[in-house]
Design a protein around this nucleic acid. Structure first.
Length: 744
DNA sequence: GGCCACTGTCATTTA
DNA sequence: AGTAAATGACAGTGG
């Protein structure tokens, strides 16, 4: 069980340190609203904020779920308070060396980490401990903090080894342990995976229900979590009642989140983020905001008019947006790489398709690479710059952080927020093989569902290319049934003289080997190649060789193989639609009988082909019909009658021939009918998708206001969103799109 | 043996 | 009226 003390100690302490280092003044009280998730909840754990904004986070990284009020360790708590007092001393820059080294690696080249925000500073203090944050009386110290911090940082070149000050060895050890936990554990997914942690613990039976609920989706609404919030008697702090997470993991999670915040909050001189976070919320357009009730940080991501309680509906809408085919998703994901550079959002948050989840995002690395340099990308200058030109602003590994390089592994939070093209050139050809920086935030299913193509299409994606891709994928389906695409639809192929050799190589070779089909192919036959005639089936007196299925599916596979040739990934696709003809039969039809073939094998082959014949063919052969079923079926009426007149046929033969003709035509008609049905279904499906796309576009245009703030603020809020729990399973997959939609 | 997809066939309607 | 096409329904077949 987590102890509240440790929770507060490790979580709030680090966050406080973080903010103090950043120079951001945080007036937490302003966020303690009843409706909106307060900042402290973001810091401390779940509340209504979590449920209202249902984003994927770092697997409940910031879960206060691990805290149980009955498990408070008072000793640790007092230790926490003592440490907090040390936090207050941070503005005097007395921070343990290890901490500062880890957090302050990169600085904004323009030296705008915090010095340009004179009003920004950390006000996270409380006489009682942690929860009370007073605002006005901290201004002096804030300025001191930020100035000294900024200057020192600049002098130190992004590494600011502070003086350990008067911290006791125990404190230093504690802090060091915290860091080592992060580092040693590698911030692996299991650390942040709530379910994983849950397995490692003996959860109270009484809490089991709540735990399970949270496991699926931590709270469906504000009320759900509100019920789970308890108030600490001493501090008055609200905290979750459930304690599913281990204390170490919670500490790490908080630490990760705090570092994430830190990494995204350089707040340079041009940073749009208000110095006082409360001012941010005030600046956020909120039409329905009642007096005294402030929006939370996340509210700007929502529509200005919608309350956070409409999030469920928003998720539903988003899900409707995302019900796209995987094909489209792939296309869209690819498109995003080509997003116009003018859109920092789509540029920065574009996703590589098919990227596996990377939950193992080490925020140490974020601190290293993503602190200020990386996030200078989001400075206003960079926003206006093309993506390619921003590459120089993204040195992922600071040159003077070798000591940290040894600690931090390959993945970098900078990469988390910056697609590959941002780290180098604006690679328009960035394909799925590129590492997905944001993939770590996404489920694969999410990637499948995200209809980012909507954005891309609206922003200049070539619709022709899209349609082309669609067609290509369609062709791969083996049944490209859209008759409009078919150059040789059955109706037209009726008059086609060479339809029997239309598509597949096997069919062409087969028809070439067919001497019978050539005779009436000029007469409008649809290509019933009588393979049997080339296979020494003289005993079948002409009424054999009817291979309707073969020719039929050859015609149905109207796709031009050359179309596939332009798609390397489809080259291997062999379109053999002669599936109702045994491959061996095709082979036997294509290849001349081997000389070594004996009489027995020949008879075998004849028997096999005999089995391949249709019933009408058998009947025709039995009735000794002097011409093939192909002719019977496909000849025009006049020619058919003329043909009948040439022979002296019995009444039974004539009846059979007419039946064969009728059935044969009906069979083709049935095939056409089914094909049309399928076409209709596919077209309807496509229409539905189009409508969904339109709906998504309209929703974006209507419901999501343009983000009025700068990219740095967006990044900050974006990262705050990362701290939120994932959406419920039935809404899984919409988180990142929502971010993309909201944070522009 | 049941299920399912595919196919052929029949009956009927429509052009 | 004859023909072809379309289509629903049913049955056979094979996986």
């Amino acid at each position: 069980m987590l102890s509240l003390k440790k929770y507060l100690t490790e979580g709030l302490l680090q966050f406080t340190i973080l903010l103090s280092l950043i120079g951001v003044r945080v007036d937490v009280d302003t966020y303690l609203t009843s409706q909106l998730p307060p900042l402290r909840e973001i810091i401390l754990g779940p509340s209504s904020a979590y449920t209202q904004t249902q984003f994927h986070n770092l697997r409940n990284t910031l879960d206060g779920y691990g805290i149980h009020p009955k498990s408070i360790d008072l000793d640790n708590y007092f230790t926490a308070r003592r440490l907090l007092s040390q936090v207050r001393a941070l503005d005097r820059f007395q921070v343990p060396t290890t901490e500062v080294n880890a957090w302050l690696v990169h600085r904004d080249p323009e030296g705008s980490v915090s010095g340009s925000q004179p009003s920004s500073g950390l006000a996270l203090e409380s006489s009682s401990g942690l929860q009370d944050v007073t605002g006005p009386d901290n201004g002096v110290r804030e300025s001191e903090t930020e100035q000294g911090f900024s200057e020192d940082l600049e002098d130190l070149g992004a590494v600011a080894p502070p003086v350990s000050g008067d911290l006791t060895k125990e404190d230093i050890d504690l802090i060091d342990i915290l860091w080592r936990q992060d580092i040693d554990l590698g911030a692996g997914r299991e650390i942040f995976d709530y379910s994983h942690r849950q397995k490692e613990q003996d959860v109270d039976k009484e809490l089991a229900d709540g735990v399970e609920q949270e496991d699926t989706w931590p709270g469906e609404g504000a009320e759900v979590l509100a019920r789970n919030l308890l108030v600490d008697g001493e501090t008055g702090e609200s905290f979750p009642a459930q304690v599913p997470g281990g204390e170490d993991q919670t500490a790490l999670s908080l630490e990760e989140c705090l570092r994430l915040l830190e990494a995204t909050c350089p707040f340079g001189e041009n940073a749009e983020f208000p110095a006082d976070i409360s001012s941010l919320t005030e600046a956020v357009p909120s039409e329905s905001e009642p007096p005294g009730l402030q929006n939370n940080l996340l509210s700007p991501l929502l529509t200005g008019t919608e309350s956070p309680f409409d999030l469920e509906q928003q998720w539903q809408d988003l899900m409707s947006i995302m019900e796209m085919q995987a094909m489209e998703v792939n296309t869209s994901s690819e498109i995003l790489y080509n997003a116009p550079p003018g859109d920092p959002l789509s540029t920065n948050y574009s996703l590589a398709p098919n990227t596996p989840i990377n939950q193992n995002v080490s925020l140490h690395q974020a601190s290293l690479g993503g602190c200020s340099q990386d996030f200078s990308l989001f400075s206003p200058e960079v926003e206006s710059l093309p993506v390619a030109s921003s590459s120089t602003l993204l040195p992922l590994v600071p040159s003077n952080s070798t000591t940290l390089n040894s600690t931090f592994s390959s993945t970098n939070l900078a990469g988390l927020f910056f697609p590959p093209q941002l780290n180098g050139t604006a690679n328009d050809t960035a394909g799925p093989e590129l590492p997905d920086p944001l993939g770590g935030l996404l489920d694969e299913a999410m990637l499948d569902e995200i209809s980012l193509m909507d954005l891309a299409i609206e922003e200049g994606f070539n619709s022709v290319q899209a349609s082309q891709l669609e067609e290509e994928f369609d062709s791969d389906s083996g049944l490209s049934l859209d008759s409009s695409h078919s150059p040789s639809s059955l109706s037209s192929s009726e008059g086609s003289s060479s339809s029997s050799s239309s598509s597949s190589s096997s069919s062409s070779s087969s028809s070439a080997s067919s001497s019978a089909s050539s005779s009436f192919s000029e007469e409008g036959a649809v290509g019933y190649s009588s393979d049997s005639e080339t296979l020494d089936l003289e005993e079948a007196e002409g009424a054999v060789g009817y291979q309707p299925e073969y020719s039929k599916f050859c015609r149905m596979s109207y796709q031009d193989p050359s179309q596939l040739s332009c798609l390397p990934y489809l080259e291997h696709v062999g379109h053999n639609h002669t599936y109702n003809m045994a491959p061996s039969a095709l082979d036997s039809a294509d290849l001349p009988p081997p000389s070594s073939l004996k009489k027995g094998s020949k008879e075998k082959q004849a028997d096999f082909l005999d089995k391949q014949m249709s019933r009408d063919e058998h009947r025709a052969r039995a009735m000794k019909i002097p011409f093939t079923n192909d002719k019977i079926i496909n000849l025009p009426v006049e020619e058919f009658n003329e043909l009948l007149s040439k022979y002296q046929l019995s009444e039974a033969q004539l009846s059979l021939i007419r039946d064969i003709r009728r059935r044969g035509k009906n069979k083709m008609a049935a095939q056409n009918c089914r094909k049309r049905k399928l076409d209709t279904i596919l077209n309807l499906e496509r229409d539905v998708e189009d409508l969904q796309r339109d709906k998504a576009r309209l929703l974006r245009e209507k419901g999501v206001p343009r983000w009025p703030y700068g990219s740095r603020t967006s990044v900050f809020i974006f990262n705050c969103l990362l701290l939120l729990p994932p959406p419920p399973p039935h809404l899984s997959g919409s988180g990142i799109l929502f971010r993309l939609t909201g944070v522009r």
